[in-house]
């Protein structure tokens, strides 16, 4: 399977001190470990188990995920931005890989 593709929405600009909304989504089947294949054997669990958002290197939001999070895990959350900078988003897969995406924001005033 090709690497899951993250999709992130961050506003391009904001005013200093503004609370912005960020939306993130990543393509991932979030195999729950409860499903069975055609032979009736359990398909092993493989999920995104951790999501983190950093702003200029500082953690601002993170989530620990369990199999009850839907496929293609989606998060919407807020961040109060005081300065221009870069958001870095990381998703950690049960198989040890991690997927990242970055977005910059310009803060005025």
């Amino acid at each position: 399977m090709a690497d899951p593709k993250p999709r992130v929405k961050v506003p391009n600009t904001a005013k200093a001190g503004e609370v912005i909304t960020i939306k993130t989504l990543i393509d991932h089947k979030m195999e729950s470990g409860f499903r069975k294949d055609k032979k009736g054997e359990l398909i092993p669990q493989q999920i995104i188990n951790k999501f983190t958002a950093e702003f200029n290197g500082k953690p601002v939001f993170s989530a620990d995920l369990r199999p009850a999070v839907s496929a293609n895990p989606y998060f919407q959350f807020t961040v109060k931005v005081a300065e221009s900078g870069t958001f870095k988003f990381t998703w950690v897969d049960d198989n040890g890989s991690s997927y990242t995406d970055e977005k910059t924001i310009k803060v005025e005033g």
Binding site: V19, I20, S32, F34, F55, K58, P59, V60, F61, S62, A63, D64, L65, R66, P67, A68, V69, S70, P73, Y74, F75, Q76, F77, T78, V79, K80
Partner: peptide, 28 residues
């Protein structure tokens, strides 16, 4: 989710930079 085979769904961590303690997601 108290009726799921495993009740834990997710844990969210906020910081003083979060602005608001709110989030949305989709669950099973």
């Amino acid at each position: 989710a108290d009726g799921n085979p495993r009740p834990g769904v997710a844990t969210f961590h906020f910081s003083d930079m979060s602005g608001e303690a709110s989030a949305s997601t989709r669950i099973r």
